[in-house]
Write a protein that binds this DNA or RNA. Sequence first.
DNA 1: ATTCTGTATATTGTATACAGCTATACGGAA
DNA 2: TTCCGTATAGCTGTATACAATATACAGAAT
Lengths: 225, 225
Amino acid sequence: MYSGDFSTMPESRPIRDIAYDRLKHAIITGELPAGARIVETAFADQLHISRTPLREALRKLERDGLVEYVLRRGVVVRAFTLADIDEIFTIRNSMMMLLLPSIVERVTKADMNELRIILSEIDVALAESDFDAMAQLNRSFHRKIESLSDKKRILRVIDDQEEYITRFSAVTIASIERRANAHEEHKQMADALERRDLEELKRLFAHHLEESKQTCIAAVKNRGL
Amino acid sequence: MYSGDFSTMPESRPIRDIAYDRLKHAIITGELPAGARIVETAFADQLHISRTPLREALRKLERDGLVEYVLRRGVVVRAFTLADIDEIFTIRNSMMMLLLPSIVERVTKADMNELRIILSEIDVALAESDFDAMAQLNRSFHRKIESLSDKKRILRVIDDQEEYITRFSAVTIASIERRANAHEEHKQMADALERRDLEELKRLFAHHLEESKQTCIAAVKNRGL
DNA sequence: ATTCTGTATATTGTATACAGCTATACGGAA
DNA sequence: TTCCGTATAGCTGTATACAATATACAGAAT
């Protein structure tokens, strides 16, 4: 892993962004575990790039809070605690409550169609026990709803936080009863959205996120972070 | 501005961080206005540094959302809208509501003493019409209270947002009635905190931030952003 | 054995060099 | 004059080179 030659690709984006995505993915999936040191020369070699774009990627990750910088010692992947997970879900819930009014106001029939399609795809993934697909679709569902709002900065806060917990989505989905319940909740949320029932939506989202949080925390407690 | 030779300093921190702070300050104060293009070679020369650390600083600012990157054209300072200000205050208020319970729980006598000292210093600044000092002290007051919480991630969200509005604090303080009212509200907040009166604190903070927001928006509307 | 210290090695911090893209200016033709 | 193509200058993207610092390890002194 972390190998591959970028020089052959049609570079529409800077190499630093590709390196950034790659490292971020590795950290989020846990491939690069907490505490792992990122040695510039080693990673630059593996990615077949020079240190310059790699360092720029590291500076971004630093601001993201995914890695920690130590003077003259480089960067290490930061650790997560249960308290972090708790806060992340709390923030997300709180921000969602702020978004919902504008979402209810702005949702269109076309949006609902998109959501229904995603839900039916989750049906399939659930039936086929394709949990990777399900994790991705779940995220699409949430992102679609969030994107209906016009509050760009609030949306960004949610995005920033969500990055951190993507890593745990597999853990959460691994719970049999949770993945079925979550899907049911999603359907209810879509229904409430279609009715533009703000209060019900708030209730559903608060419940949904709380349940996800608890499942996530419980799973992490059992299997270690 | 943007000049100064770092090479003579005892460099306890990397140059890139110094450049980062410098640029951030310039952007926040409006010295570098929205839309201004940051040409790497020019700024590196002015700061008497090479492009490498400057670019790393720019990548951080990019993640902060303070500058915008355009492929092969470098970075430009991002613009702010009234909607941004509205969202920033909304986020801050919402996050504060999440922090207050732990703040009320954790506040000590020593903390209250610190807060009282800050308040008395604001008294002086107010009497002397030293608005720069007042802006800084106000911020210290808020930061002190926020720091009483142990919710690091929520605190960080607040910090991130506050950076953006620091730039408008002068605008807000310029309002005669607002600066006196704000100070009164601060005192009431300190009192409520000392009594560990959570509900009253929530009420006071919500009111305080709402008033600040309205003053800020009104001021920006009048004087332009 | 333990601790200190000097040296070699590894790694980060910064500068510079060079390649490639973009925009602009200029000149010529319609 | 206007349009278009080309040349040129300026700037970004990346690689490489060099400097400074930290770490590891071996050997000496206690």
